[in-house]
Design a protein around this nucleic acid. Structure first.
Lengths: 223, 223
DNA sequence: CTCGAAATATGAGATATCTCATATTATTCA
DNA sequence: TGAATAATATGAGATATCTCATATTTCGAG
């Protein structure tokens, strides 16, 4: 992890303003943090001292269960917040946040700004939107995970994450995200290949019949 | 559904103030709605015109999937909001909300108050707390549903909903909530009886070994 | 370059959960 | 009161998913 200092910090702040998110001056005590791929931005169970706002890069939210299973609860992208749960709630079990690419965030120290943040209608309004989307998204994932087999959820995931017709996510990550065993994920992927929805190329998969995958994925959506 | 009028309304407002939730006067155009058990407060897919604040009673949030399965996403209790997603988001698939007891709510018309609500730090602060709890709760349910079999989740549910050592929820409701088939729920309940964790009495179940259920439920929690 | 860890792969048997069929009570409402 | 509807109950076979064992390949650190 690197904390930008001096000229590097000044330059970054100048080129990436977040003044529009607040109705007060937040620049004074703000920090700019950069994390490398696979680095932990927040350790599970350890309350952070900052509210983070992601400027560039991606990350993952993890929770570890007592039976050893790990759930990838969600992905974090540019313009998402990290640590907002701890800002708002005194009691909260902190999830682990791991960078999945190089990631640069603004880090707003709680002890300097907590009071002002919680009084700022502009910030709070953005936060309600962010949280309502988050809650809705989790509710959707929850109900879908119980109502549909992996086949449908995987089809959706493949279409969402494929790049130029190529799907190349790490199996391990996908297992944690969709909540199934490695073995079963491979099963269903093989089925997709057998049906010629996908074609395996080395360790990637090329989408051959996106309409078939689409059909499977469409069922998840409520119109 | 009954809308309180005249003296009845005046009296209810007098005895149940919600002035503390806002920093502006909201009384003028507020309505008081009472719904009977099983009545739909919001129809799935139909945007409501009010933000509701539940004063007394309980309700359930439902969503219907394309394959016909129904998910009971969550329970709503006194002091919860209804319709906040629609207040905050222009695009949102509205879930169905059904009263499970007689329920009385304050109904705050969007078209009168939307702007003021979205500018009121006091209201927004409460809303962020409400939403963060909601999001956290859904995330927990989601990851637990994937990481643990029904046995654990049902034990937790029984302990949470039992009244004086007696569990008496409707099986159908529980299936929708825990996302399992009726058949399987009965299976696991029978197992609990076989192991003497529960004892069936007519259509209720008496808890005989709460420590055993506790053990099963504890595994869900992250400490 | 090499070793060990991580990621990929595959088989086989176990189990959690589902579907469907059918029967027996409760409950509601005309 | 009687008939329709909802809720409870149980059996049996299907399938979605898991666990475990094991092999191969990839890749980063020393």
């Amino acid at each position: 992890m690197e904390v930008y200092k001096g000229e590097k910090k000044r330059l970054y702040l100048e080129n990436n303003s977040i003044a529009h998110l607040f109705s007060f001056q937040v620049e004074a005590f703000i920090e700019v943090h950069e994390y490398r791929r696979d680095e932990w931005i927040i350790q599970e169970g350890m309350r952070p001292d900052f509210l983070f706002y992601v400027m560039e890069g991606k990350a993952k939210i993890y929770v570890t269960h007592q039976n050893g299973k790990v759930s990838l609860i969600n992905f974090i992208n540019a313009h998402d917040y990290i640590g907002e749960m701890e800002l708002l709630n005194d009691v909260y079990y902190t999830k682990g946040i791991q960078a999945s690419t190089k990631i640069i965030c603004f880090a707003i120290p709680f002890h300097r700004y907590r009071t002002q943040l919680l009084d700022d209608a502009k910030f709070l309004r953005e936060m309600t939107k962010f949280l309502s989307v988050k809650a809705t998204h989790m509710a959707a994932k929850y109900s879908q995970s119980l109502a549909f087999p992996l086949e449908n959820r995987l089809a959706d995931f493949i279409l969402q994450t494929a790049d130029e017709g190529i799907y190349k996510e790490k199996h391990v990550t996908v297992c944690d995200y969709l909540g199934v065993s490695y073995r079963h994920l491979l099963h269903v992927l093989t089925q997709f290949c057998d049906k010629n929805y996908l074609q395996k190329e080395g360790r990637n998969y090329q989408i051959k019949q996106s309409h078939s995958l689409n059909e499977l994925a469409e069922v998840l959506k409520n119109k």
